[in-house]
Simulated assay, not measured.
Amino acid sequence: MRHWLWLPAYLLMLSFLMYALVSAESGEGGAASEMSLAEERTSLYMAYETPSVPWHLLAAVDRYERNIQRLRNDLEEVEGLVSFRFPEAFWAGAPNPEAGDSDPAAIEFFDGRGMDGNGDGKADPNDAEDILFTLAAALGEHGGDEDAHRLALWGFYGSEEAVGQVMTISELFRQFGTIELDEYVFPLPKTHHYTYKGTWGAKRGWGGRRMHEGTDLFASYGVPVRSVTYGVVEVKGWNEFGGWRIGIRDAHNVYHYFAHLAYFEKGIEQGQIVEPGTVVGYVGSSGYGKEGTAGKFPPHLHYGMYKFDGRSEWAFDPYPSLRRWEQEGK
């Protein structure tokens, strides 16, 4: 009987011990487990921003590198907090016989640019903190305004397209205060009737033989057309094929193309930042002729997606994305 008397106390002590163990584990790793990878990256970018180089520009360079690494076979896809890597000659110095040199004195001797960002006595070309510290110094060497940043980025990439992509990503991160811009919506409101099917690769005859680079969504005149993502309006105006059209660039090197509009939403201008659901125009039948031509086909939205890989831009089938966004919006 005395054993039964001790049982409640024993169970209470066991519960307390388990609680203490769980609390200790949470105290050791809880903060890290609660912080998402995006939050860890953002925290790191912010730690290494300077008066000349804001965190969102560091984040944009890193995101751009991550974007193109996923697309190209000639680039290693770097895992971890920071994907950006400097060329070996830049980091260690062109005449340095030790390509992966992490000795700050040797790097300086060979006119390398790699720097020790965390004070551990090494300028490690694979250390996230050393990379961001060096990147901030390189991006700020010409000054802290947009022209200075563009000049520094040109030194990295030698491409106006690449520079433009990075600056677009930076502006989006700055505007929304986060690198988590992965929300998408269907381009047409579900309160309106519409139909569509996969039309990728279909033949087109007007203006010469070509293939259809997108998906046609048929709807009535005047149905609102919405931005599917966070982005910057890169193009707005007339195109003889697409009629009144808008192009929006997002933070993943994707260009979203909306064509055959009847007219644009009032106030939408080139360079403007939009978010998922922002109305940019209205379904029409413009195109296939000189400016103002309309009515040569039934009203519909032509929606296309183009990816930039650091060298060229190419179209890919948007139909699977449209189906997913439509289903997720139910």
Rank of each mutant, 00 (worst) to 15 (best):
L261V: 02
H142T: 11
L172H: 12
D250M: 06
V22P: 04
M46V: 06
V78Q: 10
I268E: 02
I273E: 00
H56A: 11
A9P: 02
T50M: 02
G112V: 07
T168N: 14
L132N: 06
M1C: 14
F16L: 15
Q327C: 05
E328I: 08
A251P: 04
P125D: 10
E265N: 00
S26T: 09
E40M: 06
K307T: 03
E40P: 04
F308Q: 06
I248S: 01
S220G: 14
S33C: 02
G222H: 06
G100E: 13
A106W: 01
G158M: 14
G114C: 03
A60M: 12
E141L: 13
R209K: 13
P276G: 01
G267H: 04
I248N: 04
H56C: 12
G119N: 03
S102M: 13
Y255N: 00
G267A: 02
T195S: 15
A31S: 10
A47P: 08
E25Y: 15
E65A: 11
H252K: 08
L7Q: 14
E161Q: 12
F90W: 13
G155T: 09
R323K: 15
M305T: 00
G237F: 10
F186S: 00
A136T: 09
P54A: 07
K236R: 15
Y303K: 00
W206S: 07
F264A: 04
T178W: 01
G208H: 06
H56Y: 15
T195A: 13
L217V: 14
D182G: 05
D116F: 13
G144M: 08
F16W: 15
N67W: 08
V163Y: 03
A138S: 13
R63S: 09
H56G: 11
T293P: 13
V279I: 13
S227A: 15
E180M: 07
V274S: 03
A106P: 00
T168P: 10
E183T: 04
N96R: 01
K296H: 15
E275V: 00
D317A: 03
A105V: 15
K330H: 10
R209V: 10
P298M: 11
W55I: 05
I248P: 02
V22W: 07
S220F: 12
S312E: 14
V279E: 07
E160L: 15
S43K: 08
Y303F: 03
F110N: 12
V254K: 01
V279Q: 08
S286Y: 05
F186K: 09
V61Q: 03
T215I: 11
R311C: 05
Y10H: 01
T229R: 00
Y221K: 07
G284F: 12
S23D: 11
Y282M: 00
A32Q: 04
S220C: 04
Y19S: 13
S170Y: 07
D111H: 11
A106K: 09
A162D: 09
A9G: 13
E34W: 14
T293F: 12
H193N: 12
S26L: 13
